[in-house]
Amino acid sequence: MTVAAEGLPPLRTTRARRNALLQSEPVQGFALISPTLLYALILLVLPILVVIAHSFWTQHYLTIDRTFTLENYRVALTEPIYRDLLWRSLYISLTVSLFTVVLAYPIAYFISFHGGRHKSLWLFLITIPFWTSYLLRVMSWKVILGYNGVLNSGLMGLGIIDEPSTALLYNSSAVIITLTHAWAAFAILPIFVSLEKVDRTLVEAATDLGDDPLRSFLRVTLPLSAPGIISAALIVMIPTVGDYVTPKLVGGKDGVMIANTIQAQFGKAANWPLGAALSVTTMLIVSLMAGATVLIIRTLQRMAR
């Protein structure tokens, strides 16, 4: 600052200019956010870069060989065990995001169009279970779906089945049900927000011009709420692909997902580079899937108009 100003205008103006710069909006705003930004850079961006770096290295027992290699990615993409886990995780997260969005849409619609004065109460009611421990909610599904669980004993008590069904727990359906329940609130909020932004006069206009309620919903309300549907789908899809607790507690052998094997690479298997490559691959593929979902919803939105 001072070096650049040397020999130029008198000191007083320089100082004044410097003060003006320090008091300018961008500088003050940036200075204020910098501690938080720094925290995110050190504990989020840097770690992710370190993971990416590791994915190109090799583990030799206790040491890591830092010569560049794509071997981990070859293993991650071609070894049947990892490929199958990856596919299953993608399938589960796609199914879960589809279910949550389809189940959440009518609720968001109900609150937005029929909620009246109690909109925020409804939202609060729906988000409250979401604020309870995720681990406990998964655990309660284990209690419900278990061999000696609520559902089996309840159905037997009612005389609907004679012996406990083993089909309920320890498979990918149990994982899908549990995740759909766990992420329900997350899908409602973005859809609700975008429905709130739908101009009600447009819906009226469509009805006045002779569209029946179903048609005006399909051609006006639904396409206009597409941004909410998109963020709801993404906000569920991306985190669920890497879910660890649910497959571990209710998934059994058939419900194991990629996060469980990633964890194993950093734990028992002690192959950090492979774990890193699996993480990067999962994130890349789920991003591709998310991108495709956005494209599909946008195309449908355009077709509906």
Partner: peptide, 16 residues
């Protein structure tokens, strides 16, 4: 961090 899989956030921090 709100939309990233927690496991991936956790293992990256663990590595660092």
């Amino acid at each position: 961090p709100l939309v990233l899989p927690e496991v991936i956030v956790a293992i990256s921090m663990l590595l660092v």
